[in-house]
């Protein structure tokens, strides 16, 4: 990497690094809310759009374990839905 490019990289990092965590956390919070919407029926919260959100469940399943542990539930909160 040339010297100029390295300086630009450092400036870019100097801009982004301090707030990387805060922004990622905010993003995650929004995604958590979305997770709750998608899996709400399974936890007994009525969801009028469940016909559509059902389709999204397999896609979000990857993040499911992280999500429920983050929400303070050690094991999967869903009866028919073993995750860990």
């Amino acid at each position: 990497m040339g010297r100029w490019k390295r300086w630009l990289h450092l400036a870019d990092e100097f801009y982004k690094a301090p707030y990387r965590g805060a922004i990622a956390r905010e993003k995650r919070d929004q995604e958590d809310l979305f997770m709750l919407l998608v899996f709400s029926e399974l936890m007994g919260v009525p969801n009028p759009a469940s016909y559509y959100t059902l389709e999204l469940q397999p896609i979000l399943l990857e993040n499911f374990h992280d999500w429920h542990t983050r929400m303070g539930m050690e094991k999967s909160p869903l009866d028919n839905f073993r995750c860990c």
Partner: peptide, 8 residues
């Protein structure tokens, strides 16, 4: 990659 990330 949220809080813990190696930085120059």
């Amino acid at each position: 990659d949220v809080d813990y990330i190696p930085t120059d």
